[in-house]
Computed example of a mutant assay.
Amino acid sequence: MTLIRLSWAQGADTTVELPGYETPGAAGADLRANVPDGPVRIEPGARALISTGLHMEIPSGFEVQVRPRSGLALKHGITLPNSPGTIDSDYRGVVGVILMNAGNEVFEVTHGMRIAQMVVAPVQQATFDISDNLSATTRGQGGFGSTGVG
């Protein structure tokens, strides 16, 4: 199991639950809104940066991917416009989640609400080299829909 060290941001409400897995088989741990000054209203079509109140220390060789919660997406149209968002292992700032309201009604983010999920994933860095000859494949240069629909 990978250890992610957490610390509270200045001004955060330290009684908000830490990220957690809701079921034994869950891949994502829920992140919660830390908005002690009151709810944040997101108008239809708008987006807002919601603080988790947390700093993370992610081990080298890993990232944290931030993804939408399916229930919020289905019931309210709440999604993450940069999904999945990446938190790099060398980032130490406060973790924020960009929420977008793709629904038809105003959505209110309340203090302690589960707003997104985080997945810890291994990362491999590559080296890059220019070449005049790339290996051939059956697909070749076919892109966007070239393998068929559905």
Rank of each mutant, 00 (worst) to 15 (best):
R5A: 14
L6P: 02
W8I: 09
A9Y: 00
Q10L: 13
Q10N: 11
G11W: 03
G11D: 14
A12W: 12
A12Q: 09
D13R: 12
T15F: 02
T15P: 04
V16T: 08
V16H: 12
L18N: 10
P19E: 06
E22Q: 15
A26M: 06
A26W: 01
A27R: 00
G28F: 04
A29D: 03
D30P: 12
D30I: 02
L31G: 02
R32Y: 11
A33E: 11
A33T: 09
G38L: 06
V40R: 00
V40T: 10
V40W: 01
G45D: 13
G45Y: 13
L49N: 04
S51I: 01
M56N: 01
S60D: 13
F62P: 02
F62L: 08
E63A: 00
V66Q: 02
V66Y: 07
R67K: 14
S70A: 12
S70D: 05
G71N: 10
G71S: 15
A73F: 14
L74C: 06
G77T: 08
I78K: 11
I78Q: 10
I78P: 06
L80T: 00
L80G: 01
P81V: 08
N82V: 07
N82E: 05
S83N: 10
S83V: 12
G85K: 05
S89H: 14
D90G: 11
Y91L: 05
V94H: 01
V94Y: 00
G96Q: 08
I98V: 15
I98A: 06
L99D: 03
L99M: 08
G103I: 07
N104A: 11
F107C: 03
I115M: 09
A116G: 08
A116D: 06
Q117K: 10
Q117T: 13
M118Y: 02
V119R: 04
V120C: 05
V120G: 03
A121W: 00
V123N: 10
Q124W: 05
A126V: 15
A126N: 07
F128W: 14
F128A: 13
D129M: 09
L134Q: 09
L134E: 06
A136G: 01
Q141I: 11
G142E: 04
G143V: 14
F144D: 03
G145R: 07
T147N: 03
